[in-house]
Structures are given as C-alpha cells and as structure tokens.
Design a protein around this nucleic acid. Structure first.
Lengths: 206, 206
DNA sequence: TGTACATCAGTGAACGCGCGTTCACTGATGTAC
DNA sequence: TGTACATCAGTGAACGCGCGTTCACTGATGTAC
C-alpha cells in the first residue's frame, strides 16, 4: 500500500468533517464535489476513491453532524443535575451563537427540509439519526414514564428546531432575537411544567 | 397590444401559482425555469417577459404561498369562536394531509432553510411574510395583552413548523405519526394553558 | 541487506448534461387612418 | 368601413457555465525476493 494503513481513513474522515460544515452552511445542494474536496485539501478526481456518489457523502456528513450535536449535548450536561439537562440543552441550542453558525450547529433546521426530499435511502438515514436524538433527549427527562419522556423530547426538539428555523429566516435583527427569546422561555417553561401534567394525565386514560 | 389588457397579468399569476406549488414540493432549487414554465403551459424563453430573474419568481411564489396559507387560516376560522381559532389552525396544520402535500402547505418547513440562505433581498421578503403570519396568529389569541399574544403566536408557529419539519424527515410511518400527534397535543395544551399563566384575572372555562 | 515490482490514493483533463439567461424571430391582435 | 402598420407575449435555438462523474495516469510507499 502506498500510504500507511490509517491514511485513507483519515482522509475520508477529513472530507466528511469539512463537508458536514459546508453542507450545513450552504445547504445539501449548495456546494459542489470539487469545492468540498478543495476544503479537504484535495482535488475533485479523488472523490470517488472515497465515496460511491455525492449523495453517499451527504449521508455520511449529515450523520456525522448529528453525532457531533449529540456529543456536544453529552459534554455540556456531563456534570449537571439530571432535571436541569434538558433546559441547558435548549438554552445552548437557542443561542445567537448557534443561529449565526449553522455550519457547526444542528442539521435539522439547516438540512431537514432538503434531506426529507432526497431519495428514501437518504431520508431514512436522517430519520434514524432523528430517532437517536429523540431517545437521547428522553434520557435527559427524569422522573417520567418512558413514553411521556419521549413525548416531551419530541415536543421540545420540534420547538427547538422550529424556533431556530424561524430565527434564521428572520435574520439577525430584532425579530430574530425576539424569536430566540420566546423559544427559550417556552422551552424552559415546558421543562418545568410537563412532568406534573403527564403524571395527572395517567389515570384519565381509562 | 396583442392580447387583451389582463392577459399578461393572468399569465404572470398562473406562472406564480404553479411555481409556488412545485417549489414547495421540490425545494427552492429543486426545479428549473423551463419546467416551471411548462407547468404554466409555456416555453422557457418567455420567462423573462414576466420576471427579472429566477430569484424574482421565487420571491413572488413564496409570498403567494404565504398569503394562501393565511387565507386558508382565515377561512377555516371564519365562524369559529375566537378562543378556539388558534387550536383549530394548529390541528389543521399538524395533519397528515399537510405533511403529505407540501406543495399546497406552509412554506416555512418546506422552504425556510433554503430561503434563509438566499440573498438578503429574498430572505427579507420571507422575514416580512413571517412577521405578517405571526401578527395574524396573535390576532387569534384573545384576552391577552398584545405582547403576550405575540409571544404565544411565535412559540406556537415555531412548534408547528418544527413539528412538520420533523414529521417530514420521519417520512410517513410510525415515527412520523407519533411526531404529529405529540405536536398536536402540545399545541392544544399550550393554547389552553398560556392565557391562564399570562392573565390571572381571566375566568376559567372548565 | 538492497533492488524490482505492485499497489492505489490522489491528479487533472475530459465527458455529457442541465441550468439560467439571451436573442432573433413569429404572428395574433390593437390602433391609425 | 377596410387596410396597413405597430406592438409585444410567447417561441425555440443557442450561449456560457458549472455540475457530477469517468478515466488514464502518477509517484510514493509497501512488499517480495
């Protein structure tokens, strides 16, 4: 072999890493193979030694981005009391820093709509990671039956993603800041409220 | 003039109408000028008699789509009690019908991310319509100071758009239906809860 | 140990294709007389 | 009234361009002997 055993894997990973940033910034169709390879310090011809197609890279880059998001969540909640974790994640998520740096942020508001329109294979890869993320959020909701925790996780993630989407549409001015602020208040309030509501609901279902 | 006075305007409107459907279905970059003109029963060469550029059509088509959404909201809430309007809108919004027909649905989950990345001009046009939509939703939240109503409108719209985005990522299976259901419960609950929190003097409805 | 060969990640030109846009032209109709 | 001309929405070929993908080639390094 020409290069050391790990060399190819390292290059592959570098392409994925750089692509995951640029794709979130510019959209799933917003940047070409040649430019993505240039980001990784390579020329475009070598692309197909690493990926079957552009779409295959999009899938990998997107999965990588979702994993990174979840890793960040784990890190920031590492030494935080269980009942405060969800609120902390929401607060981090709904920051101007996140809004203004889509390249290093959550893929859902950045790429969700586009990837939902791709081939079933791509969409399913996205859906799988989405479910992982929901499960992870549910883990951060203590003192609740699993089903209720999962519901709250879905509602919170939807509110977070929707708020970020609206904030980015609004730009970076007054309306955008207002949207982020409301999203934060609403998420924090939801985190406080939901446990009681879910507990009271249970006897009602009979 | 070759055609009757209204002919050109009618053609223009037809292009915008058809484009607004296809763009929501396929994304802001998912369909070309030639195909959009074919949708309207024309050939691509005539496009520039109606629009300065493709982007100009995207702006018009998107604004049209937002206006249509607001018109639908007005229609379905027309003879409904004021305090039930927001819940009715959310219920309609978070339906499988809406999820499975993005072409005739809300532009925010369909085009939001892409348009937020376009030129400032395009993004601002979107932001203006977003604000209109927020204001309209705030009008449907009675018995509240305006500022609180606006906050609730933003939170509800964000939750609605985020839920639809997640549901479309999830496809049309179990996870997707779960997402829609949770979104609906959460929106209805929010509509019930918020007024009490904001205004303690409001009498209970049971 | 040194030498010859095999490997294959990466290069860069080239491919076909579809895109947004331009442009000379058409021909049905409005207008002038 | 009828006739000649002007208008301009719409046509379709053509443009330059960038895209994803292919391919013959390169050359540094691993391996065989």
């Amino acid at each position: 072999m020409r290069y050391s055993r790990e060399h190819k894997q390292e290059t592959h990973d570098r392409i994925v890493r750089k692509a995951s940033v640029r794709l979130r910034e510019k959209g799933a169709h917003g940047i070409g193979v040649a430019d993505l390879m240039k980001e990784a310090g390579l020329t475009h011809g070598g692309f197909y030694a690493h990926f079957d197609s552009r779409e295959a890279l999009v899938i990998e880059a997107f999965a990588y981005a979702m994993d990174r998001s979840m890793e960040i969540w784990r890190k920031i909640t590492d030494d935080v009391a269980p009942e405060k974790r969800l609120a902390l994640i929401a607060e981090n998520y709904l920051s101007t820093l996140h809004r203004d740096n889509p390249g290093h942020g959550c893929s859902i508001p950045a790429l969700g709509a586009e990837i939902a329109r791709e081939s079933p294979k791509t969409r399913k890869a996205f859906a799988g990671k989405l479910d992982e993320m929901i499960e992870m959020m549910a883990d951060y909701i203590p003192n609740q039956p699993r089903k209720a925790a999962r519901k709250q996780a879905i509602a919170t993630l939807a509110a977070m993603a929707g708020t970020m989407l609206l904030a980015r549409i609004a730009g970076s001015g007054e309306l955008s800041d207002e949207v982020l602020k409301v999203g934060k208040d609403s998420a924090l309030e939801g985190a406080r409220r939901e446990p009681k509501v879910a507990a009271a609901k249970k006897p009602k279902q009979g």
